[in-house]
Design a protein around this nucleic acid. Sequence first.
DNA 1: GATAAAATTTGAATCTCATTCATAATCTGC
DNA 2: GCAGATTATGAATGAGATTCAAATTTTATC
Lengths: 253, 253
Amino acid sequence: MGIQDRKKRQLEEREQLFLDKAWTLIQQEGVLNLQMSRLAAECEYAVGTLYLHFSSKEDLLVALATRNVSDRLELFLRAAAWAACPRDRMLAVVVADVIFSQRAPEYFRLAQYVSTHTIWVAASEARREAALEASRPVGEAVRDIAEEAMRSGDVASSGLTTQEMCSGIWAMTEGMHSLVSASGLLETHSVPRPYRLLIKHAHALLNGLGWQPIMPLNDFDQQQALLERILREVFPEVPIAACQATENQPGDQ
Amino acid sequence: MGIQDRKKRQLEEREQLFLDKAWTLIQQEGVLNLQMSRLAAECEYAVGTLYLHFSSKEDLLVALATRNVSDRLELFLRAAAWAACPRDRMLAVVVADVIFSQRAPEYFRLAQYVSTHTIWVAASEARREAALEASRPVGEAVRDIAEEAMRSGDVASSGLTTQEMCSGIWAMTEGMHSLVSASGLLETHSVPRPYRLLIKHAHALLNGLGWQPIMPLNDFDQQQALLERILREVFPEVPIAACQATENQPGDQ
DNA sequence: GATAAAATTTGAATCTCATTCATAATCTGC
DNA sequence: GCAGATTATGAATGAGATTCAAATTTTATC
């Protein structure tokens, strides 16, 4: 039925409008200051209409975070599809995440806020499932890399599934984002340039898993060369000068 | 001046009373349901008095999270003071963190919620600094382990400071907590028993840093033996049967 | 121990929003 | 063109954080 289709499409369009505008408002004034009534007004709809789409404010935030995953996915897929050995691609994934965190810091705050138990459980079941579903292709892209590495003998399973193999580096990346966003924390503990460190520890972890080819941990030049190669070949839009900047926290000496 | 001292002491006592009660309420009904007016009433003080201590609700939450750090520190110090080689102690620290997360899950939620940018910036400057200051001894306990390991030649610096050496494992632990608390996420990505995995990846990372003695990654029995030794010698209050349970997520098959 | 100034405490009143729902507007099938 | 169904509306409600003028208590001085 064409009419039903159109209606569904229009509903979807309106939802996107709400999300677009919500994102704009959040970028302008932060998550804390997003007001449902204000958002509705900016979109020229009644508050009630907004609530036809989202069961609560938290529900809307989860929807927003979910939608933004696709931008992140785009970077991940480029890293995963890169014509290089699995290990280098795995590192490219970490670099992709760092680049994304620099490019859209507000997204990271949102994602962190939303994955808080407090907010998470306040969203609707359906919304939560959609969010988890959206994260699936990201995980799969990474797992494919591990799978190829295992098949080609670059890394032994050590009793781990491919997913489990990836989970360590995933946790480490995620954790570093958390530490970075708790402003002042890393400074307090004398840990400057967290993202440069993350990459180094990623090398250490991959080495520890026996993932070939091993990167000599104290060979700074080789690590730097790989990093620059990744930026040049996978993320050419990132200015070459940003190679340093990417690794620096704003405010570092 | 004795009178001033007494006044200061009483003020401090009242603050502790507020925090004690807040913690009780949060454990009963969750962070989301903590009400300032209710808290004041339970303590038999006026709301205004509560606000003489805490500039906002967020401020109170940060204070609460800060205070709870000391319980965590106690476990960390036991791990750090254990009579074992630095590497085993480092692992004991990870185990301490896992035990603590199981023992006081609500604390973890609070800590996670509070370190969110949104909440963090809503607390007073002084409160934030106190929180960072409280985390310092935890960091130092861990750093001391790395320092001893470097001094004794168990691990080479690879161009890292002792703090930087610890930051990878810190990020990984922190990240795994985040992933665990985003309920459904790890299940979606087929990663059961996250804390068992964390320990395995911790071994991998330490191996990758060249930290002696190397733990063979595929020797499950040796890893299990070390884990049990840590539980027996450092955390004897954790029932031996919990050795498995500790590693399991509730709801795992 | 009386008095006034200073410091502390109080809680009703205010204010900000998220959320609801009775009503109005619009659409659909006949 | 009309009854019934579907959508949209936004004023009203409710929950709860925060404030601040007034009340109370403490301190200092004689």
